[in-house]
């Protein structure tokens, strides 16, 4: 049991480090949050340490993105892969990775294409995390 807890801790630490590197690499990307199906954060990483708390607004945004992906699944066009919500001053991308949802919070100045390019790397991390979620 202790070995499993240590294993989970190592995986989460590794995921956090990789996400930090990703945030530094992409201009305008402010934070990355992994949540479960209910929108409960599993891992959250921000560019600014002040953002680590994640206010009510972000929780609401994440819940809305998950709900909209659920609605989109009824369009009879297959499984929804991601949703992009472009606003006046920000943009939010939510990737649907089965058990885990990945949310990218970025400024409107960030290149959407660059954010979408992160999908492959995020999928690999999400599969690692879903293993942890499965075990717990």
């Amino acid at each position: 049991m202790i070995a499993l807890a240590e294993f989970e801790h190592v995986i989460l630490q590794d995921v956090r480090e990789q996400l930090q590197r990703m945030i530094k690499r992409v201009d305008g990307l402010n934070s990355i949050v992994f949540t479960d199906r209910d929108g409960v954060p599993v891992v959250k990483v921000s560019r600014n340490s002040q953002d680590q708390g994640f206010g009510f607004a972000k929780a609401e945004q994440m819940a809305c993105s998950i709900a909209s992906l659920t609605q989109a699944g009824r369009l009879q066009m297959g499984r929804p892969k991601y949703v992009i919500s472009c606003k006046d001053s920000s943009q939010l991308i939510c990737f649907n990775e089965n058990q885990v949802f990945v949310h990218l919070f970025a400024s409107s100045a960030a290149t959407t294409g660059m954010l979408l390019c992160l999908e492959k790397e995020l999928t690999a991390l999400a599969s690692d995390l879903s293993r942890v979620i499965d075990n717990s």
């Binding site: 819940a63 909209s68 066009m77 297959g78 929804p80 472009c86 920000s90």
Partner: peptide
């Protein structure tokens, strides 16, 4: 869903566009 979520904050951040990518298409 997306429009409601932007309301009620101190600064109104209006939604300009929503894109949903699905396995068999895009909306």
């Amino acid at each position: 869903l997306h429009e409601q979520e932007g309301k009620g904050g101190l600064h109104d951040d209006k939604v300009r566009q929503v894109i949903i990518e699905l396995e068999e298409g895009c909306v």
